[in-house]
Simulated assay, not measured.
Amino acid sequence: MKSIEPKSANVRPQRPRRNIASRVLPPIALLFVGALAVATSLPAAAFGPGSSFGMTGATGGSQSQNQLLSVDASAADASVLRDGYTVNTPTPTPTPTPAAKSAPASTGGSPGGWGCQRDAPAETTRLTWPYDHPVKIGDGFGPRAEGMHDGVDLLAGNGTPVQAIGDGIVTASGYNGSAGNYVAIATMVGGQRLCSMYMHFQDGSVTVTVGQELTAGTVIGLTGDTGNASVEHCHFELFFADGVRFDPIPYLTANASY
């Protein structure tokens, strides 16, 4: 009879062998699923060549501090060129303020301001027309082709005497390239200084001087065509001390006589 030796106490019992595939496939499957998840979560540009930088969401929060996004280098440069400029707004050069000019004594470009602001004598006793008889009127008061006409043109024959329209004082007299030989007279009417203007006298015909006091109807010169005149006439203007011209015909029609 064959004797049976007892098993050694140090010998471990045999475990059943597992199939190799059962041990290897599960980890591989997990890795595949993880790679697929990563691939679908990144934009296509993440797999292109170029530089990489941290990606930040539109709201400002970081989507992933460790995740890197690769973009085309030319696109990154374009972003820098577009957003990296500064706008220098030029400081406008202030327009120099012209020096203040003293206000003229009268408007309409009349020579010498005519001195209508000077004191006039006592209230006039009457008003008359520049001629002692009715005459034709050429250009009236108002705008015309060459500009504003500040008075009226009284068409009397060459050498016809022109007279002061009221008691007053001669405030200006002389020659001007536009007015020719002229005279200005200040008259007190209703407590206001009324200035009357007379232009285009014949050379050497003016009979009054500045500062001379006159009475209504005094002859001050003879009708001519000196200065800017194409025909013999008297250019006549009226205005108060403010220098604003007004149409003298309605005023004289209402207040003057021959």
Rank of each mutant, 00 (worst) to 15 (best):
I249L: 15
S196M: 07
G204D: 15
L194W: 05
G180I: 00
L25I: 08
G142A: 08
G34N: 09
S205P: 08
D132W: 04
L127K: 10
S173N: 06
M55A: 12
K136I: 00
H149E: 09
M199F: 15
T218P: 00
G147Y: 03
S110D: 08
T95Q: 11
S102E: 12
R126K: 15
T223A: 01
V231W: 06
Y85W: 01
G109R: 03
P98A: 15
P98V: 12
H149N: 06
H233C: 02
A76C: 06
G159N: 07
A164F: 06
S3N: 13
A35Y: 13
Q65T: 08
V80H: 04
G34S: 12
S62W: 02
I169S: 08
K7F: 13
Q63R: 10
S70D: 02
Y182G: 02
A75F: 06
T56E: 14
V183K: 05
L68T: 06
T93P: 03
T215G: 06
D119H: 07
R245V: 03
T59W: 04
T93K: 14
M197T: 11
P96Y: 12
T107P: 00
T91A: 09
P121E: 04
A103E: 00
K7T: 04
G166A: 15
S110C: 01
G109W: 01
Y131P: 00
M55E: 02
S62L: 01
G190Q: 13
V206W: 04
H149W: 11
I4W: 10
G84R: 07
T40W: 13
P134M: 01
A256R: 08
A44L: 04
V71M: 11
P250C: 05
F141I: 03
F201A: 10
H133A: 06
G168M: 10
A100Q: 13
M1H: 12
A122D: 12
T56V: 15
F201S: 04
I165C: 07
E5M: 13
S70M: 03
G217A: 05
L25T: 06
L238F: 10
W114F: 03
P27R: 14
A37S: 04
E232A: 12
Y251M: 06
P43Y: 13
A229C: 03
I220C: 01
R15A: 11
S230K: 14
A103M: 01
T86Y: 02
A9I: 05
K2Q: 14
L68Q: 14
C234H: 02
S205F: 11
N10K: 07
V244R: 15
